[in-house]
Amino acid sequence: MEALFAITLGIMTASGVYLLLRARIFPVVMGLTLISYAVNLFIFSMGRLATGVPAVIGKSAEYGDPLPQALVLTAIVIGFAMTAFVVVLALRSIGELRTDHVDGEEPRK
Protein backbone atom coordinates (compact mmCIF):
# COMPACT_ATOMS: atom_id res chain seq x y z
CA MET A 1 0.00 0.00 0.00
CA GLU A 2 2.84 2.40 0.89
CA ALA A 3 4.49 2.02 -2.52
CA LEU A 4 1.24 2.65 -4.38
CA PHE A 5 0.53 5.67 -2.21
CA ALA A 6 4.00 7.08 -2.74
CA ILE A 7 3.82 6.61 -6.51
CA THR A 8 0.43 8.36 -6.60
CA LEU A 9 1.78 11.31 -4.67
CA GLY A 10 4.82 11.45 -6.92
CA ILE A 11 2.73 11.54 -10.09
CA MET A 12 0.43 14.20 -8.66
CA THR A 13 3.30 16.41 -7.57
CA ALA A 14 5.12 15.98 -10.88
CA SER A 15 1.98 16.92 -12.82
CA GLY A 16 1.51 19.90 -10.53
CA VAL A 17 5.06 21.12 -11.09
CA TYR A 18 4.69 20.63 -14.85
CA LEU A 19 1.48 22.67 -14.90
CA LEU A 20 3.05 25.34 -12.69
CA LEU A 21 5.87 25.78 -15.18
CA ARG A 22 3.40 26.39 -18.04
CA ALA A 23 3.31 30.01 -16.77
CA ARG A 24 -0.30 30.58 -17.89
CA ILE A 25 -2.73 31.42 -15.13
CA PHE A 26 -5.21 28.58 -15.50
CA PRO A 27 -2.59 25.80 -15.63
CA VAL A 28 -0.72 27.47 -12.76
CA VAL A 29 -3.81 27.47 -10.54
CA MET A 30 -4.48 23.82 -11.47
CA GLY A 31 -0.85 22.99 -10.72
CA LEU A 32 -0.96 24.65 -7.32
CA THR A 33 -4.18 22.76 -6.54
CA LEU A 34 -2.67 19.42 -7.52
CA ILE A 35 0.42 20.10 -5.42
CA SER A 36 -1.68 21.03 -2.42
CA TYR A 37 -3.73 17.81 -2.82
CA ALA A 38 -0.52 15.82 -2.88
CA VAL A 39 0.74 17.68 0.20
CA ASN A 40 -2.52 17.01 2.07
CA LEU A 41 -2.27 13.30 1.33
CA PHE A 42 1.36 13.36 2.38
CA ILE A 43 0.49 14.90 5.76
CA PHE A 44 -2.22 12.26 6.15
CA SER A 45 0.26 9.46 5.48
CA MET A 46 2.61 10.80 8.16
CA GLY A 47 0.22 9.31 10.72
CA ARG A 48 1.17 5.95 9.14
CA LEU A 49 -1.13 4.02 6.79
CA ALA A 50 -3.24 1.35 8.48
CA THR A 51 -6.80 0.07 8.21
CA GLY A 52 -9.25 -0.96 10.90
CA VAL A 53 -7.48 0.58 13.89
CA PRO A 54 -9.36 2.76 16.42
CA ALA A 55 -8.52 6.42 16.81
CA VAL A 56 -8.51 6.13 20.60
CA ILE A 57 -5.29 5.52 22.50
CA GLY A 58 -5.37 2.56 24.87
CA LYS A 59 -8.21 0.67 23.17
CA SER A 60 -5.73 -1.50 21.29
CA ALA A 61 -2.01 -1.82 20.77
CA GLU A 62 -2.34 -0.16 17.36
CA TYR A 63 -4.20 3.11 16.99
CA GLY A 64 -4.77 5.61 14.23
CA ASP A 65 -3.00 8.91 14.87
CA PRO A 66 -5.69 11.63 14.89
CA LEU A 67 -3.33 14.61 14.79
CA PRO A 68 -2.38 14.45 11.07
CA GLN A 69 -6.09 14.51 10.27
CA ALA A 70 -6.45 17.75 12.20
CA LEU A 71 -3.41 19.14 10.38
CA VAL A 72 -4.84 18.11 7.01
CA LEU A 73 -8.08 19.87 7.87
CA THR A 74 -6.22 23.09 8.65
CA ALA A 75 -4.14 22.76 5.50
CA ILE A 76 -7.24 22.17 3.36
CA VAL A 77 -8.98 25.26 4.73
CA ILE A 78 -5.94 27.46 4.22
CA GLY A 79 -5.25 25.99 0.76
CA PHE A 80 -8.85 26.56 -0.27
CA ALA A 81 -8.76 30.21 0.79
CA MET A 82 -5.46 30.78 -0.98
CA THR A 83 -6.73 29.16 -4.19
CA ALA A 84 -9.81 31.39 -4.11
CA PHE A 85 -7.54 34.41 -3.71
CA VAL A 86 -5.36 33.39 -6.67
CA VAL A 87 -8.44 32.90 -8.87
CA VAL A 88 -9.72 36.39 -8.04
CA LEU A 89 -6.27 37.85 -8.62
CA ALA A 90 -6.05 36.00 -11.94
CA LEU A 91 -9.39 37.44 -13.07
CA ARG A 92 -8.21 40.92 -12.19
CA SER A 93 -4.93 40.38 -13.93
CA ILE A 94 -6.69 39.27 -17.13
CA GLY A 95 -8.96 42.30 -16.87
CA GLU A 96 -6.19 44.82 -16.30
CA LEU A 97 -3.30 43.38 -18.26
CA ARG A 98 -5.18 41.68 -21.12
CA THR A 99 -2.99 38.58 -20.90
CA ASP A 100 -3.06 35.33 -18.95
CA HIS A 101 0.72 35.02 -18.70
CA VAL A 102 1.98 35.13 -15.10
CA ASP A 103 4.59 37.75 -16.02
CA GLY A 104 1.79 40.12 -16.98
CA GLU A 105 3.07 40.36 -20.55
CA GLU A 106 3.40 38.01 -23.50
CA PRO A 107 6.89 36.48 -23.75
CA ARG A 108 9.01 37.91 -26.56
CA LYS A 109 9.15 35.64 -29.59
Binding site: V39, F42, A75, A90, S93, V102
Partner: peptide, 20 residues
Protein backbone atom coordinates in the same frame (compact mmCIF):
# COMPACT_ATOMS: atom_id res chain seq x y z
CA UNK B 1 -1.17 43.14 -10.20
CA UNK B 2 1.86 42.10 -12.23
CA UNK B 3 4.26 41.92 -9.30
CA UNK B 4 1.56 40.56 -6.98
CA UNK B 5 1.04 37.49 -9.17
CA UNK B 6 4.64 36.34 -8.77
CA UNK B 7 4.58 37.04 -5.06
CA UNK B 8 1.37 35.07 -4.46
CA UNK B 9 2.22 32.04 -6.63
CA UNK B 10 5.74 31.72 -5.20
CA UNK B 11 4.52 31.93 -1.63
CA UNK B 12 1.77 29.37 -2.25
CA UNK B 13 4.40 26.95 -3.50
CA UNK B 14 6.50 27.84 -0.46
CA UNK B 15 3.57 27.00 1.82
CA UNK B 16 3.31 23.54 0.24
CA UNK B 17 6.99 22.92 0.89
CA UNK B 18 6.57 24.16 4.47
CA UNK B 19 3.78 21.63 5.03
CA UNK B 20 5.88 18.80 3.61
Amino acid sequence: VRSGMHYVVLNLLGSSLFLI
